[in-house]
């Protein structure tokens, strides 16, 4: 059992400052009316009580836009100038259980199969993940449906807010080393103090409206049955083809590679892309997904079928509920799961 420590909430800015002396610290900051993970500075408005950030921690591992290299052109001669991989230790503080699980999904995509993505890897190994239990999961949360425990978030270090204190427990060697480094600001605490809070969170998470979803039918053998299901015809109908769900999704990992003329050379960069955009699969001789129905279906098939088929049944959704909150036309993955999951299961029984 890992040792438990606590620090008064009032002393947290001291803690951030202490961490900031040696490495950058990112945490939920309210700026311009929105909660996002941002670099801490003394006047940043930190809000650990907010439920979810709009952007997810994936931004810190897979930035919206990242330069890969510069090609200097001299006539038709090309010189490739690579840049060093990211190499600064940093801490992400206050990551919720769902987002931690989402990083595991991203790790699978980017790191589990050869060749690994070295840009992602460089950032990932430099990061310490400090998670934070959700004291008040809300209606749009459905992490429980994917068996994610909001009361016991993973990560390198886990934390809980109980009363006027932030409790902390290292979860692995990396976390232990991190906690030891800042030990001076903490006082010892009893792990048992947290039992009540954990039970309360677990109960809350289980009682939310979307905590139980019919996910049983989403298995490899049903792939074609679900792909060909007639419900896609109306499920996609309201979709306006924007990328909101993709970009605010903690597990969406597709990217595009493009060029930008920076006058001093052509920068080749990669940036987030969305399978909801028609340009996504457009190539010189045509497009293999011509209508929004096909693009819409691809996104949800990938999350619910293709990803689990490739990674041992791990769903590509962690139930963070951002798409429920953010979709301009109130579509979301829960509507899809409910519509297809129930019908496919019923047909199987019939």
């Amino acid at each position: 059992m890992n040792k438990t420590y606590k620090i008064a909430l009032g002393n947290l800015s001291k803690l951030y400052g202490r961490i900031n002396e040696t490495q950058q610290i990112y945490l939920p900051v309210r700026r311009g009316g929105t909660l996002n993970f941002e670099k801490w500075h003394e006047s940043a408005v930190v809000d650990l009580h907010g439920l979810k950030t709009t952007n997810t921690p994936k931004d810190l591992f897979l930035p919206q836009s990242e330069d890969l290299y510069t090609a200097k052109m001299d006539g038709t001669n090309i010189e490739i100038i690579t840049k060093d991989f990211f190499d600064n230790a940093f801490v992400i503080f206050g990551v919720k259980a769902c987002d931690i699980e989402a990083i595991a999904v991203m790790d699978n995509i980017y790191l589990s199969k050869h060749p690994v993505d070295m840009y992602y890897e460089a950032r990932r190994k430099n990061a310490v993940l400090v998670s934070l239990a959700c004291n008040a999961p809300k209606n749009a949360c459905f992490c429980a449906a994917f068996n994610i425990d909001a009361a016991n978030p993973k990560g390198d270090v886990a934390t809980w807010i109980l009363g006027e204190y932030l409790y902390t427990q290292a979860q692995n060697g990396k976390g232990k080393a991190f906690v030891e480094d800042i030990m001076g600001l903490f006082e010892p605490a009893e792990a048992d103090d947290l039992l009540g809070l954990k039970a309360e969170i677990a109960e809350k998470a289980q009682s939310l409206p979307y905590s139980k979803l019919p996910l049983e039918s989403f298995t490899g053998e049903n792939m074609m049955k679900i792909f060909d299901h007639e419900n896609w015809d109306f499920l996609h109908r309201a979709c306006i083809g924007c990328g909101t769900c993709t970009y605010t999704c903690p597990t969406c990992s597709c990217y595009d590679i493009k060029d930008f003329d920076k006058c001093s050379g052509t920068t080749r960069f990669r940036c987030w892309d969305s399978c909801m955009y028609p340009e996504f699969t457009l190539m010189a001789h045509g497009n293999n997904r011509l209508t929004q129905k096909e693009r819409f279906r691809q996104r949800f098939m990938h999350k619910l079928m293709y990803h689990p088929m490739n990674y041992d049944g791990q769903f590509g959704c962690v139930g963070c509920g951002r798409c429920i909150n953010k979709c301009p036309v109130s579509l979301n993955i829960v509507k899809i799961i409910k519509s297809l999951g129930v019908e496919v299961a019923e047909n199987a029984n019939a």
């Binding site: 995509i109 980017y110 199969k113 060749p115 993505d117 490899g220 792939m223 792909f227 990992s253 597709c254 990217y255 595009d256 590679i257 990669r270 892309d273 399978c275 996504f280 699969t281 457009l282 190539m283 001789h285 293999n288 691809q298 990938h302 079928m305 293709y306 088929m309 490739n310």
Partner: peptide, 24 residues
């Protein structure tokens, strides 16, 4: 097969069809 590809290493997602990535 021929599909649009960007990364070539099964990460960027655009050549995904079913559980297959055409580039890998």
């Amino acid at each position: 097969l021929e599909l649009r590809m960007k990364c070539g290493i099964g990460k960027c997602g655009r050549c995904n069809i079913g559980d297959k990535f055409v580039c890998m």
